[in-house]
Amino acid sequence: MNFWRGITAILRKDVLTELRSKETVSTLSVFALLVVVIFNFAFELRVENAHQIAPGVLWVALAFAGVLAFNRSFLLEREGGCMEGLRLMPMERSVIYVGKLLANILFMLLAEAIILPIFAALFDVPILNAALWMVIVLGTIGFAAAGTLFAAMAVNTRAREVMLPILLFPIAVPVLIASTKSTAQILDGQPLFEIYAWIRLLLAFDVIFIVLALLSFEHVLEE
């Protein structure tokens, strides 16, 4: 009971703040698009190899954008000591993790909804595919699950913004590999059972990090 009340309150508060400023989703989308465009220049894309590198470009862009989102979500809580306000709430502190995680996933999915069509047009790939969406959702959850945990630590360090990516990227290697590979296989039109192993890996990663974060968040948030 308490648990859900806290989660929905935090989620609602983050959505309200976002509706007011519209900063997170817009910066995320613009940044992810920029990464896609930069890759275009970097690889001097021609039509014949565009298809091949499209999955990699997409996931690198999403990973970079995710780092921005996770950092921002905790930097906002630092202002005016709001994290203290949250820590005073009458519930286990893992509630804060879940609330923040859901908000981060939501903002990332919104940004993905904006950039996917543009990405599809630029790389000429079909995106109307339920399996692809499932991979994107699972991959996003994985990045966000680890990213939200690490961002809560990174904002309390001297280097703040820099610390998160160098911790998150090595940890999220399985998500990056699984998402990129399965996206490629889906875009290549391979049968669904081919990507089954990847889906399982993504699920495992998501579960492991959510459980780990629920168990350790109290320790992370302590002062």
Partner: peptide, 22 residues
């Protein structure tokens, strides 16, 4: 922080290994 990181890192090793092997 260091304790949480060393727990997360070690738990993740088999997942990384599996992913890379696949």
């Amino acid at each position: 922080f260091s304790a949480v990181l060393s727990i997360a890192g070690f738990i993740n090793v088999p997942v990384v290994f599996l992913a890379i092997r696949l």
